[in-house]
Amino acid sequence: MAKMTYIKAITSGLDQVLADDPKTLIFGEDVGKNGGVFRTTVDLQDKYGEDRVFDTPLAESGILGLAIGLSLTGWRPIPEIQFMGFTFEAMDGIVGQLARDHYRFGGQKNFPVTIRTPFGGGTHTAEMHADNLENYFVSTPGLRVVTASNPYDAKGLVISAIESDDPVLFMENLKLYRSMKDEVPDDKYTVPLDSAKVVREGTDITLVAYSAEVNEALTAADALAKDNISAEVIDLRSLSPIDTDTIYASIDKTHKVVVIQEAQRMAGVGAVVASDIAEDKIMSLDAPIGRVAAPDSVYPFAQAENDWIPNSDDIEAKAREIFNY
């Protein structure tokens, strides 16, 4: 066990799957000698050779085509899309092709592709480098979408994603890359692909969040505790599918819920979670479902990010409103 950053935990997971499965391949823009623009794949080319870890020409649709074709010839591809904003260039490859191919073959062939991509605001990046674009992908049948809020889950989830025979979009939070450390086992371990986790137990209200917003929710829960409001915090981890069982069990205990996301409010993961709760658990609720999300503008200019991204104060305020309803 060692203290590891979120990014080191991902690198450690990648290292272990490369060691265990000779059919795994890491490729993308700058992932080779440079080790990725964030150094997520650092030293992996030296360790496993250019056949296993290699740079691609600069073209995201081509990267997805490469991943699909490599699947068809028996490989287990782990492409990197350098920033999630660049997935738009690969939209046909991801949504139009990869996610559908297992279905198209009537289940005869697998496409075990894990697309790694950094996302998330708060680091003052250039435009199109920080957006939360998960909303586009969680509405895609055939594609799993996961994201971690901490180093332990990041390593376990990336290993599960790569070992899965389904295509998985693995979203890596930019702000968390180097801002948090955790005890992370040196050995290989997995975190299930479709299960949420109760990261803080509580009895009065449930806060459902994912990725960086989990940490905002935990901060809000600390503040609420000072007024004897006991908040339970759930980390979704999987955005598609949603683990409703874990959420419902919590609501049966607390009878109040706030759903939180960093992405814009419109048609998002939070809306899916809220509608599931409304459909299945409305009789267990003592208050309306609360929602915290970014406003429905285009992603903000970098200088104004902190005015736009929902933070622990926003979550705390919404939780108090729902708690006191």
Binding site: G65, L70, D92, G96
Partner: peptide, 17 residues
């Protein structure tokens, strides 16, 4: 055009195999 992008992967897979 999508089949052209995928051809690159099949061809590279053949080479790697």
């Amino acid at each position: 055009g999508a089949q052209y992008a995928e051809t690159a992967g099949v061809a590279l897979g053949i080479k790697k195999n």
